[in-house]
Amino acid sequence: MNTQTNIPEDMELVYGFPEALTEVSTHYCPGCTHGVVHRLVAEVIDELGIRGTTIGVAPVGCAVLAYNYFNVDFVEAAHGRAPAMATGLKRVNPDKVVFTYQGDGDLAAIGTAEIIHAATRGELITTVFINNAIYGMTGGQMAPTTLPGMITTSTPTGRDPILAGYPVKMTELLAQIAGSAYITRQMAADVPSILKAKRAIKRAFLTQMHGLGFACVEVLSTCPTNWNMDPWKAMEWVKETLAPAYPLGDYKMTDEVKALEVR
């Protein structure tokens, strides 16, 4: 948290602008939860005191410009390759904290091999995985996580699994992998779920910092623009439609991860 703020001596700073965020407006659409999750990651970085030792890897997709919003060292990966880049960064900087921030197209389609093998190696990196079941930046095409029947600009009559396959559940897949230490699915759809997602992100960073293995936090998120919904309805849709299809919860948590104190 920004400690530069002048606070009277008899008062305590309980809320402020995170030091790990830059003070600029984001390009995200109204009602999009990228901004919310960015803030959660930044608060976690501040609370863990790792702003000066953290390296972020940005994806291709709506969060391609994430590095404009985080006040930490950043690199921009090719589409889907963030876990490979993060691997290279972490292996030559084992004392640093390396995280990737990826969307569903990036992580669950073009970058499937990279994320699976990063997990397989138990790579000591943290992945924040935004799943809003659609390609946002390219204009609302089908994502690997698009639900059956969902209308997108590349499934105009709704996703037909016979033609276009079934949604892929990455969290369930990653949880099967021996190198994974902490694999969880959260959502950013209301205050309680957002606070819970923050604790999960903090646990995922701590998993890396304690050298316990690969950690990934999937966050079910909104895309009001490409879902053709207003922000409120989009939040409701996450809870009512997306979360039942992608059940929330911790899918893998080793005993060491469980023992981590997350405040």
Partner: peptide, 24 residues
């Protein structure tokens, strides 16, 4: 020093890219 067998050449070159960004 660091040696890693990647999952593919795509993986390998992007690991190289990441490490190179650290100036090694």
């Amino acid at each position: 020093r660091v040696f890693l067998q990647a999952e593919s050449e795509l993986g390998a070159i992007n690991m190289v890219y990441g490490a190179a960004c650290s100036g090694v």
